[in-house]
Design a protein around this nucleic acid. Sequence first.
DNA 1: AATACAATTGAGAATCTTTCTCATTTGACG
DNA 2: CGTCAAATGAGAAAGATTCTCAATTGTATT
Lengths: 146, 146
Amino acid sequence: MKYKTSAKGKDGIRDIFHARRLKCTPQRLSVFRVLEQSETYLSINSIHAKVKELLPGTGLATVYRSLETLIDLGLVVKVHLEDGCHSYAVAPEGHRHPIVCTECNKVIEFAECPLDKISEKLSKDTGIQIQNHFLQLFGKCRECGA
Amino acid sequence: MKYKTSAKGKDGIRDIFHARRLKCTPQRLSVFRVLEQSETYLSINSIHAKVKELLPGTGLATVYRSLETLIDLGLVVKVHLEDGCHSYAVAPEGHRHPIVCTECNKVIEFAECPLDKISEKLSKDTGIQIQNHFLQLFGKCRECGA
DNA sequence: AATACAATTGAGAATCTTTCTCATTTGACG
DNA sequence: CGTCAAATGAGAAAGATTCTCAATTGTATT
């Protein structure tokens, strides 16, 4: 039931970049690697710290820019945390939503999206064409005690 | 189909504050009034501007603090916008979720929560007790062209 | 109504997050 | 290998939010 990380090979990503005429830079790759190797959502600062281990000298602005690019490519997703900060993770396969542990902020799992069917009904009920939605679920992971 | 603002009378709020041993200050009341009189979510700066019309000299920090208090009391809700900024509105009756216009950021309406029933099923499927969720829907309002 | 006290406020400093600028570097491609 | 636009690093800048602290003000009590 565990979600699969997208596990794009180096060439997979390279192709994705090239298809969009974006350069395949070590900084961008590192940012993606770091997220791929984490099982939780990471804050900008954690990402920056980990990227600098792989690629010393990488600037914070570049991390921001890389994340923006990766989100744009659909490779990464961004969550809004309650405190107003943001965190990032590799995008899950398909249309799913994170279940975040209320204790440790770890992403426990991604849930199949229950809204696809509902959106249609909602659109009818409200008369508004629902274009999109943002959903996060919260629960408690095993480590933090059910 | 329009959502109802909670329309708490002056005394209703006063009682809510007192029950929690919070002072019923003109600043807090003004912040709430401003939100009550708006049909859209408002940014901090709009709220601050409008509060100053009612109560010149009100500081920005106080607006932040009042909102925090009101959210804590369940009288106000906060939305996360895509750009990372936040907006605030009077909490709707019952458990509902905002539909935000993708063009003008106005909250068009609140939708009945479709997750109550689903959460249970989700908990069974995943084995994780879902405690909570955060949901926002996006569509386009009439003014911005369906 | 006057008093006392803790809660709240205003102002500005401080912090944190994110974006921007610009000179320099570097992928991609011929 | 040379070219050139795209990307980067560093630091400034802009915004959002929180903090500090002295002054003020609700509230409960007299």
